[in-house]
Design a protein around this nucleic acid. Structure first.
Lengths: 250, 250
DNA sequence: CGTCAGATTGATATTCATCAAGATCGGTGG
DNA sequence: CCACCGATCTTGATGAATATCAATCTGACG
């Protein structure tokens, strides 16, 4: 699925490099620093917890394969997904600064994650200012996405919210080199999707059906086919600015 | 209102130092770097725009006085507040990395803001790694707050949402040295508050009345008095962890 | 005293949650 | 090959939360 067109060696940081390179030029030196970061690899089953709320991680986590989610849990056992992450997303840079996790990170599909120690990351931060800004940038883009989610949660009816979400995830997957033309795999259940969008599973299902009826996307199983991105974006009032997908000096 | 108990000279960065010092030790050197940052000061009327969506700022903005908000606007003219900022908040570090603003910053009450150029900030980032991490930290805490907002928007009925918000704003004002015992001024209209919480103005009003009825807070005009913070926090299931209010090495 | 913004109230419509029950589908053991 | 099973998706019926519309009330202030 990944359009590894340049035949680069696939390492844990390949998708990260792909994503960063969409936002700024990466110098050879910075690239080397990244490539030499020691990473540990782990795989996770669907719904397995990757990082636990309340823990104090000594490592940061990078998604290499699959969908992961940031999850804020409530006392009553319900939970809300507050972020969805795809390969190339450095999900857990936060802990480097926050120290104690205020939320969990969970695998929504079967996943592969790479870990690198805070000690090594801190060395990078102290020695490579530009790379630091790029790491910082990823967390700031993450925050921009969250803002857009807030706006969608409160102001948009579920159908437009879903359409907006589909636009976002399509462009993000595209930036990570993970789309197949105008199609992609959204390998998560409607139940999980309902947790992403803050709807009941029943209403989520009805909303997906309504979106299918618009003919703007065809969506069978986990396969999503964007029939007409322009039209979908117009329908959802989607403006990609918040994803910062332009390559410029940061 | 500010408990300037140590009799430090009041400069634009006083509230910022106050807020940072709650999260980590600030070295004398870093403190000096901050104090020597050249700042320009501007005042704003209620509802005046401080930074415009779509612009490419050359400066970053720090709140010195009053309430400001991050605002995501829709085509239909409605808007959603995606963040509320108080004195000491470095509202607009984002633009340093995002370059183009995907949202606006607006004064919710009469405000004073301080501006410093990206050129100077970039110099700090390149030369003071620890200060950089602290700046980064403020944006990450901001993101943690946004996550909590997402969770509250989707899962909580309006009364609990409001109670949670009051807890948050109380602790944040307290961390900035802006509370007066168990009271504070929330100098924004219910209309504005409804934009913060994503409710209609009418429902916002009814929710405020319901909160008053709980006797957990008394709230007359802009004056909010927390009768029993413990009880209010329990009522709202409020856990302050996400505000990262512990002083530790970051 | 008149005006105006903000706060409040009442009545009604819409969206969404909840509960309960089928339908579908891939896999699995006999 | 078939019967069964669990997970997921789907449907229908009902109620609660919230939006919307339209007034009215209140207090500050010229």
């Amino acid at each position: 699925m990944s359009d590894n067109s340049k035949n680069e060696p696939v390492t844990p940081i390949s998708p990260l490099l792909h994503t960063l390179a969409r936002r700024d030029r990466i110098s050879a030196k910075d690239r080397t620093i990244l490539e030499e970061l020691p990473f540990g690899i782990r795989t996770y089953r669907r719904e397995e917890e990757i990082i636990t709320a309340g823990s104090r991680p000594e490592q940061s986590c990078l998604v290499v394969q699959g969908f992961t989610a940031r999850v804020n849990s409530f006392e009553d056992g319900t939970r809300q997904v507050t972020g969805l992450y795809i390969p190339g997303d450095f999900v857990d840079l936060h802990a480097l600064l926050l120290r104690t996790m205020d939320h969990s990170v969970v695998a929504l599909s079967p996943c592969v994650a790479a870990f690198t120690s805070h000690r090594d990351l801190r060395r990078v931060v102290d020695q490579a200012p530009h790379l630091t800004r790029l790491f910082w940038l990823t967390t700031v883009i993450d925050a921009a996405i969250q803002r857009t989610w807030i706006a969608n949660y409160s102001r948009r009816p579920s159908l437009l919210h879903l359409a907006h979400f589909v636009c976002e995830i399509y462009l993000r997957l595209e930036a990570a080199g993970m789309v197949d033309g105008d199609q992609f795999d959204l390998d998560i259940t409607q139940q999980q999707l309902s947790e992403v969008m803050g709807l009941s599973p029943v209403h989520m299902n009805r909303t997906v059906q309504k979106l299918r009826q618009t003919q703007l996307v065809s969506w069978t199983g986990s396969r999503v086919h964007i029939a007409d991105f322009r039209a979908l974006a117009r329908f959802a009032s989607f403006d990609p600015l918040y994803l910062s997908l332009s390559r410029e000096p940061r």
